[in-house]
Simulated assay, not measured.
Amino acid sequence: MKKALRREIRARRLRVSAAQRRRAAIAAAQYALQLITQRRARRVALYLAYGSELPTAPLIQRLQQHGLRIAVPRITAPGVMHFEWLRAGAPMRRNRLGIEEPATRGSRAHRAELDVVILPLVGFDLRGNRLGNGGGFYDRWLARPRIAQRPRYLGYAYALQQAEHLPREPWDIRLDAIITEQGTRWPTG
Protein backbone atom coordinates (compact mmCIF):
# COMPACT_ATOMS: atom_id res chain seq x y z
CA MET A 1 0.00 0.00 0.00
CA LYS A 2 2.79 2.47 0.90
CA LYS A 3 4.63 1.80 -2.37
CA ALA A 4 1.50 2.50 -4.41
CA LEU A 5 0.83 5.70 -2.44
CA ARG A 6 4.41 6.86 -2.96
CA ARG A 7 4.14 6.24 -6.71
CA GLU A 8 0.83 8.09 -6.96
CA ILE A 9 1.93 11.14 -4.95
CA ARG A 10 5.34 11.35 -6.63
CA ALA A 11 3.55 11.32 -10.00
CA ARG A 12 1.51 14.33 -8.83
CA ARG A 13 4.70 16.13 -7.79
CA LEU A 14 6.32 15.47 -11.16
CA ARG A 15 3.47 17.31 -12.89
CA VAL A 16 4.36 20.57 -11.10
CA SER A 17 6.00 22.93 -13.62
CA ALA A 18 9.26 24.75 -12.89
CA ALA A 19 7.38 28.07 -12.58
CA GLN A 20 4.80 26.55 -10.19
CA ARG A 21 7.66 24.98 -8.20
CA ARG A 22 9.37 28.38 -7.75
CA ARG A 23 6.14 30.13 -6.71
CA ALA A 24 5.23 27.34 -4.29
CA ALA A 25 8.72 27.35 -2.73
CA ILE A 26 8.59 31.10 -2.12
CA ALA A 27 5.08 30.96 -0.63
CA ALA A 28 5.84 27.95 1.60
CA ALA A 29 9.06 29.58 2.80
CA GLN A 30 7.08 32.63 3.93
CA TYR A 31 4.57 30.50 5.85
CA ALA A 32 7.38 28.49 7.44
CA LEU A 33 9.28 31.61 8.44
CA GLN A 34 6.14 33.08 10.05
CA LEU A 35 5.57 29.94 12.11
CA ILE A 36 9.23 29.56 13.09
CA THR A 37 9.60 33.19 14.16
CA GLN A 38 6.26 33.15 16.03
CA ARG A 39 7.59 30.19 18.02
CA ARG A 40 10.83 32.10 18.67
CA ALA A 41 12.85 29.24 17.26
CA ARG A 42 16.56 29.93 16.76
CA ARG A 43 17.93 26.53 15.65
CA VAL A 44 16.29 24.75 12.72
CA ALA A 45 17.15 21.43 11.09
CA LEU A 46 15.89 20.88 7.58
CA TYR A 47 16.52 18.75 4.54
CA LEU A 48 18.08 19.87 1.29
CA ALA A 49 15.43 19.21 -1.36
CA TYR A 50 16.17 17.09 -4.39
CA GLY A 51 14.21 15.84 -7.37
CA SER A 52 10.57 16.87 -7.34
CA GLU A 53 10.46 17.80 -3.63
CA LEU A 54 9.28 21.26 -2.63
CA PRO A 55 12.51 23.31 -2.88
CA THR A 56 13.99 24.33 0.46
CA ALA A 57 16.56 26.84 -0.89
CA PRO A 58 14.21 29.87 -0.49
CA LEU A 59 13.47 28.81 3.09
CA ILE A 60 17.16 28.37 3.91
CA GLN A 61 17.87 31.82 2.50
CA ARG A 62 15.12 33.43 4.61
CA LEU A 63 16.20 31.62 7.77
CA GLN A 64 19.78 32.79 7.23
CA GLN A 65 18.60 36.37 6.64
CA HIS A 66 16.87 36.22 10.03
CA GLY A 67 20.01 34.96 11.74
CA LEU A 68 18.74 31.48 12.56
CA ARG A 69 21.18 28.61 12.91
CA ILE A 70 20.54 25.85 10.36
CA ALA A 71 21.44 22.16 10.46
CA VAL A 72 21.28 19.85 7.44
CA PRO A 73 21.44 16.05 7.18
CA ARG A 74 24.57 14.04 6.44
CA ILE A 75 24.46 10.32 5.68
CA THR A 76 27.20 8.64 7.67
CA ALA A 77 26.59 4.94 6.93
CA PRO A 78 23.99 2.84 5.13
CA GLY A 79 20.64 3.83 6.67
CA VAL A 80 22.21 6.24 9.17
CA MET A 81 22.20 10.02 9.20
CA HIS A 82 22.73 12.89 11.58
CA PHE A 83 22.46 16.66 11.29
CA GLU A 84 25.39 19.06 11.02
CA TRP A 85 25.39 22.82 11.41
CA LEU A 86 25.48 24.51 8.03
CA ARG A 87 28.40 26.90 7.62
CA ALA A 88 27.96 29.87 5.29
CA GLY A 89 29.85 29.31 2.05
CA ALA A 90 30.74 25.71 2.93
CA PRO A 91 31.19 23.56 -0.19
CA MET A 92 28.49 21.00 -0.91
CA ARG A 93 28.58 17.63 -2.65
CA ARG A 94 26.08 15.00 -3.69
CA ASN A 95 26.03 11.88 -1.53
CA ARG A 96 25.47 8.34 -2.79
CA LEU A 97 21.71 9.00 -2.99
CA GLY A 98 22.20 12.14 -5.09
CA ILE A 99 21.24 14.48 -2.24
CA GLU A 100 23.39 17.49 -1.41
CA GLU A 101 25.22 17.59 1.89
CA PRO A 102 28.23 19.49 3.24
CA ALA A 103 31.40 18.29 1.49
CA THR A 104 33.42 18.29 4.70
CA ARG A 105 32.38 17.13 8.13
CA GLY A 106 31.13 19.83 10.42
CA SER A 107 29.86 20.20 13.93
CA ARG A 108 27.07 17.79 14.77
CA ALA A 109 23.67 19.24 15.75
CA HIS A 110 22.02 17.16 18.45
CA ARG A 111 18.26 16.84 18.64
CA ALA A 112 18.15 18.44 22.10
CA GLU A 113 19.71 21.59 20.61
CA LEU A 114 17.04 21.99 17.93
CA ASP A 115 13.86 24.04 18.18
CA VAL A 116 12.35 22.88 14.88
CA VAL A 117 12.95 19.98 12.48
CA ILE A 118 11.51 20.34 8.98
CA LEU A 119 10.99 16.88 7.56
CA PRO A 120 10.84 15.76 3.95
CA LEU A 121 7.85 13.69 3.00
CA VAL A 122 6.14 12.10 0.07
CA GLY A 123 2.68 12.41 1.58
CA PHE A 124 0.85 13.65 4.66
CA ASP A 125 -2.64 13.50 6.08
CA LEU A 126 -4.46 15.88 8.37
CA ARG A 127 -3.91 13.62 11.37
CA GLY A 128 -0.22 14.53 11.26
CA ASN A 129 0.92 11.29 9.68
CA ARG A 130 3.88 11.42 7.31
CA LEU A 131 4.72 9.09 4.45
CA GLY A 132 8.48 9.29 3.99
CA ASN A 133 10.65 8.38 1.04
CA GLY A 134 10.99 4.79 2.22
CA GLY A 135 14.62 4.73 3.32
CA GLY A 136 13.85 5.02 7.04
CA PHE A 137 16.61 7.60 7.67
CA TYR A 138 14.31 10.04 9.48
CA ASP A 139 12.35 7.31 11.29
CA ARG A 140 15.59 5.96 12.77
CA TRP A 141 16.84 9.45 13.65
CA LEU A 142 13.53 10.38 15.30
CA ALA A 143 13.40 7.08 17.21
CA ARG A 144 16.68 7.68 19.01
CA PRO A 145 16.38 7.93 22.79
CA ARG A 146 13.75 10.35 23.97
CA ILE A 147 14.82 13.78 25.09
CA ALA A 148 13.18 16.01 27.69
CA GLN A 149 12.21 18.82 25.32
CA ARG A 150 11.77 17.63 21.78
CA PRO A 151 11.79 20.02 18.82
CA ARG A 152 8.66 20.75 16.83
CA TYR A 153 8.36 18.45 13.83
CA LEU A 154 7.06 20.20 10.71
CA GLY A 155 6.23 18.61 7.38
CA TYR A 156 7.11 20.64 4.28
CA ALA A 157 5.34 19.78 1.04
CA TYR A 158 3.09 20.83 -1.80
CA ALA A 159 -0.60 20.88 -0.89
CA LEU A 160 -1.18 18.25 -3.59
CA GLN A 161 0.80 15.75 -1.48
CA GLN A 162 -2.06 15.50 1.01
CA ALA A 163 -3.65 12.06 1.26
CA GLU A 164 -7.01 11.23 2.79
CA HIS A 165 -5.53 8.73 5.23
CA LEU A 166 -2.01 7.33 5.61
CA PRO A 167 -1.10 4.07 7.29
CA ARG A 168 0.55 4.59 10.67
CA GLU A 169 3.24 2.34 12.10
CA PRO A 170 3.92 2.08 15.86
CA TRP A 171 7.26 3.90 15.45
CA ASP A 172 5.84 6.81 13.43
CA ILE A 173 5.99 10.21 15.07
CA ARG A 174 3.21 12.66 14.27
CA LEU A 175 3.94 16.02 12.71
CA ASP A 176 3.12 19.08 14.78
CA ALA A 177 2.15 21.01 11.62
CA ILE A 178 2.41 20.75 7.85
CA ILE A 179 3.52 23.74 5.80
CA THR A 180 2.51 24.02 2.15
CA GLU A 181 2.35 26.80 -0.41
CA GLN A 182 -1.26 27.32 0.73
CA GLY A 183 -0.45 27.85 4.41
CA THR A 184 0.04 25.97 7.63
CA ARG A 185 -2.13 22.97 8.37
CA TRP A 186 -2.58 21.74 11.93
CA PRO A 187 -3.20 18.04 12.55
CA THR A 188 -6.62 17.25 13.92
CA GLY A 189 -6.06 13.89 15.51
Rank of each mutant, 00 (worst) to 15 (best):
E101C: 09
E101P: 07
E101R: 08
P102W: 07
P102A: 10
A103E: 11
A103M: 06
A103D: 05
T104I: 08
T104N: 14
T104C: 13
T104M: 10
T104P: 11
T104H: 14
T104D: 15
R105W: 14
G106F: 11
G106N: 07
G106E: 09
G106P: 06
S107F: 15
S107C: 12
R108P: 07
R108N: 08
A109F: 08
A109D: 04
H110Y: 14
H110S: 10
H110F: 12
R111P: 05
A112S: 14
A112V: 13
A112D: 14
A112F: 10
E113Y: 10
E113R: 08
L114R: 13
L114I: 12
V116S: 09
V116H: 05
V116C: 07
V117I: 15
V117A: 12
V117Q: 09
I118C: 08
I118F: 09
I118N: 10
L119N: 01
L119G: 05
P120E: 00
P120F: 01
L121C: 00
L121P: 02
L121Q: 03
L121Y: 02
V122H: 09
V122Q: 07
G123L: 04
G123W: 03
G123E: 02
F124M: 01
F124R: 07
F124Q: 00
D125M: 10
L126P: 08
L126M: 14
L126F: 13
R127K: 13
R127Y: 13
R127P: 06
G128K: 04
N129T: 14
N129I: 12
N129D: 09
R130H: 02
R130F: 07
R130C: 06
R130D: 00
L131N: 03
L131W: 10
L131I: 01
L131R: 10
L131S: 03
L131T: 01
G132T: 07
G132K: 08
G132M: 03
G132E: 04
N133Q: 15
N133H: 15
G134N: 03
G134I: 00
G134P: 04
G134Y: 02
G134R: 02
G135H: 01
G135M: 06
G135L: 05
G136R: 02
F137H: 04
F137L: 06
F137E: 00
F137V: 00
Y138Q: 00
Y138F: 05
Y138P: 00
D139F: 00
